[in-house]
Lab assay of single mutants.
Amino acid sequence: DVEEQIRRLEEVLKKNQPVTWNGTTYTDPNEIKKVIEELRK
């Protein structure tokens, strides 16, 4: 469920934690926001 994935990513973003997505770890909040934007398409 895309909405659920977006919610999880936004939670991690608020906590300033790194996100691992498709084998890539993102630590930059701007990169995480880009992943969220991609999911919304």
Rank of each mutant, 00 (worst) to 15 (best):
E38N: 10
T25I: 12
Q17W: 15
K33N: 06
D28I: 03
T24H: 13
N30Q: 11
N30Y: 13
L39N: 00
T27L: 05
E31Y: 04
L13N: 02
T27W: 10
N22H: 09
L9T: 01
R8K: 13
E31K: 05
R7I: 07
L9G: 01
K33Y: 12
P29R: 06
K14R: 14
P18E: 08
G23W: 02
D28S: 07
Y26A: 00
N30E: 14
E11G: 05
E3V: 10
L39W: 04
E4M: 12
I6F: 03
Y26T: 02
R8F: 15
K41D: 04
Y26R: 00
E31T: 05
E31A: 07
Q5T: 14
I6C: 04
T20M: 13
I32S: 01
E4I: 11
K14S: 14
T24R: 13
T25M: 08
V35I: 15
T25H: 06
E3N: 12
P18D: 07
I36L: 13
Q17H: 06
E11L: 11
V35G: 00
I32Q: 01
T27I: 05
E37A: 14
V2G: 03
K14N: 11
K34Q: 10
N16R: 13
E11A: 11
T20G: 03
E38M: 14
W21M: 10
R7A: 11
V19S: 02
P18F: 07
T24E: 10
G23V: 00
E4H: 08
P29N: 04
R7N: 05
E10I: 11
K34V: 06
V19R: 00
Q5I: 15
G23A: 02
Q5Y: 11
E10S: 05
L13F: 09
W21F: 14
V12M: 15
R40M: 08
E4L: 10
E38H: 11
Q17I: 12
T27E: 05
E10W: 10
I6V: 06
W21N: 02
I32N: 00
E11T: 07
N30K: 11
V35L: 15
Q5S: 09
E11W: 05
I6Q: 01
L39Y: 04
V12E: 11
L39F: 03
K41Q: 13
Q5G: 04
I6Y: 03
E10Q: 09
E3K: 09
E11K: 05
N22L: 10
V12K: 15
K15D: 08
R7S: 07
E38R: 12
E11S: 08
N22T: 02
N30R: 13
L9R: 00
E37Q: 11
N16E: 04
T27S: 11
P29F: 07
V2E: 03
I32G: 01
P29D: 03
Q5H: 09
E10C: 11
E31N: 03
I6M: 04
P18N: 06
L13M: 11
K14Y: 14
R7E: 05
V12R: 14
V35Q: 03
K41V: 09
T27M: 05
L9S: 00
I32R: 00
E10Y: 11
V19T: 05
T25L: 15
Q5V: 14
E10R: 05
G23S: 03
E3Q: 13
K41E: 09
N30H: 12
V2W: 13
K34A: 13
K41W: 10
D1T: 14
D28R: 03
K15W: 13
Y26K: 00
I36G: 00
E31L: 08
I36S: 00
E37M: 11
I6N: 01
R8E: 12
I6K: 01
V35D: 01
E38G: 08
E11P: 01
D28G: 05
E4C: 13
D1H: 10
T24D: 05
E31H: 05
W21V: 12
P18T: 12
E4Q: 11
V2D: 03
E37L: 11
R7Q: 08
I32F: 09
E31I: 07
Y26N: 00
R7H: 07
D1Y: 13
P29E: 05
G23E: 03
R40A: 04
K15A: 13
V2Q: 05
G23M: 02
V35F: 08
K15N: 14
G23D: 04
E37V: 06
R40G: 03
N30L: 12
N16K: 09
K33M: 14
I32P: 00
K34M: 11
K33T: 06
K15S: 14
N30T: 12
Q17P: 04
T25Y: 11
E4T: 10
D28A: 04
I36K: 00
R8L: 14
R8T: 11
N22Y: 10
W21S: 02
N30A: 12
W21D: 01
E4R: 08
R40Q: 06
K33D: 03
P29A: 08
Q17K: 08
T24I: 15
V12G: 15
G23P: 02
V12N: 14
L39A: 02
N16T: 07
V19N: 03
R8S: 07
L39T: 01
E11I: 07
K41F: 09
K34F: 07
D1W: 15
K34G: 08
I36T: 01
D28P: 00
E38T: 12
D1P: 11
T20C: 13
L39Q: 01
N22M: 13
E37G: 04
V35K: 03
V12W: 12
E10L: 14
L13P: 01
R7D: 04
E38C: 14
K33F: 08
L13W: 07
E37P: 01
K41I: 10
L13K: 01
Y26H: 02
E37W: 06
P29S: 06
R7L: 09
K15F: 12
T20A: 06
